[in-house]
Design a binder for these strands. Structure first.
Length: 391
DNA sequence: TCTGGGGTCCTAGGACCC
DNA sequence: TCTGGGGTCCTAGGACCC
């Protein structure tokens, strides 16, 4: 049996757990100015506030709403506490998100899976003051759907062999991979509940879901043989984005922000001992339409300055309508482990890299990103080959 | 003046290689 | 004086998930 553990209104619950004054009151975690609600307490939901509603709209629905900016370190900590209860049962725990995960209960000896699951649900509620919902079933798919079905503080056990019975009446959008677009297409084709998907011919389903058709059919029939995987896979990309308080077409500002995002990202990447070969720049216009450009370097890199040239080029290429933007994003992908060029990573070059990094950070802190970019331009003009740039 | 941030996976066309 | 077949990699865009 597999347990799916899913915290209710996680960010909002953590805030209420951490500050008793917030308990019983309508609160939301999310962006203040142009943000959205990332999590709403159940008190707030009574007013029609839900994720991902624009915060401004939420405040109109519920003027007493307390909006908090979000503290991800705190959520991370609570998340670890929460999963520690699952680890008390078994090491076979798969953390699939900050607020949800699976535990394989097959190895339990002294206690029945359902009793163990209910015990940790009570412990988390009493000790962490966080409500969680749980689903126990023979596979991950059914356990996950079960835990989400009776939120908050729900608990459902789906007996082995009764998966189809359980899934049949549910709407198609309960199936993972069926979002708003696919659900709309399915509706057009007359498919509204999972039972109808389960009875489809594979060839017909392929027209709707493409290569996912086989998996979709198995899921709809309650069949899922994905194992609980305790080790987490390494990230395949890193990205940072920023939505501006007001839309802007100040090119110098936009490029500077992109470079700052890249700096932060590179720092994170270097902490993880990763380097990247592909960089992408995405922009979002005031009308929410988007454009993205990417390019690959000849070698993986892990210094901010290695990416600046590409970022500026990509930004100019993406920004073909020269009108106001509301968001820019930088993404690094095509990641490699370890230093980009092992021979460069002796003690001397490491010191040089760190010194350069410190200098760049100091220039940025002291004079701002525009100065950083200007000094970078200056370095590039003086030394277009980049050969003596580090020196 | 409605619409965040951080991810994964898939598709489709084109360049290029043997 | 005609143009296959199989493969990889790159790029742009979009759906979906939490």
């Amino acid at each position: 049996m597999i347990l799916h553990l899913d915290a209710d209104a996680f960010f909002a619950s953590v805030e209420q757990a951490a500050d008793a004054r917030l308990r019983g009151r309508p609160i939301a975690v999310g962006g203040m100015k142009r943000g959205i609600v990332a999590s709403a307490s159940y008190e707030a939901r009574k007013f029609g506030v839900y994720t991902p509603m624009p915060t401004s709209q939420a405040l109109r629905l519920c003027p007493r709403l307390i909006v908090l900016p979000g503290d991800y370190d705190k959520y991370e900590l609570f998340s670890r506490f929460m999963f520690s209860y699952a680890y008390d049962l078994t090491p076979e725990v798969e953390v699939s998100g900050i607020d949800e995960g699976y535990a394989d209960l097959a190895g339990l000896r002294r206690v029945r899976p359902e009793e163990a699951a209910q015990k940790i649900q009570r412990a988390i509620a009493q000790q962490l003051k966080i409500g969680v919902s749980e689903g126990v079933a023979a596979n991950k798919l059914v356990a996950q759907i079960a835990s989400k079905l009776r939120k908050p503080r729900g608990f459902i056990v789906v007996e082995s062999g009764r998966e189809r019975e359980f899934l049949d009446p549910l709407a198609v959008n309960w199936l993972p991979g069926v979002g708003p677009k696919l659900a709309a297409e399915m509706r057009l084709g007359g498919l509204t509940c999972i039972r109808q998907v389960a009875q489809m011919e594979m060839e017909c389903l392929r027209l709707l879901c493409g290569v996912q058709a086989a998996q979709m059919l198995r899921f709809s029939q309650g069949i899922d043989d994905r194992p609980v995987v305790a080790t987490r896979e390494a990230a395949k990309s890193y990205s940072h984005q920023e939505t501006f308080a007001t839309d802007t077409c100040d090119e110098e500002f936009l490029t500077a922000r992109l470079c700052v995002l890249a700096d932060d990202l590179v720092e994170k990447m270097r902490c993880d001992r990763k380097c990247a070969r592909t960089v992408s720049v995405k922009i979002r216009y005031a009308d929410m339409s988007e454009a993205e450009r990417s390019e690959s370097l000849p070698e993986p890199a892990d210094l901010p300055e290695d990416f600046y040239g590409s970022i500026r080029r990509l930004f100019r290429a993406a920004w073909d309508r020269r009108v106001r933007l509301r968001l820019v994003r930088v993404k690094f992908s095509n990641l490699y482990s370890g230093p980009p060029l092992p021979t460069l990573f002796n003690r001397e070059s490491l010191a040089r890299r760190n010194a350069l990094q410190d200098t760049l950070t100091a220039v940025r802190n002291r004079f701002g990103s525009r100065a950083l970019m200007r000094s970078h331009d200056w370095l590039c003009r003086r030394d277009p080959t980049g050969r003596s740039r580090q020196a």
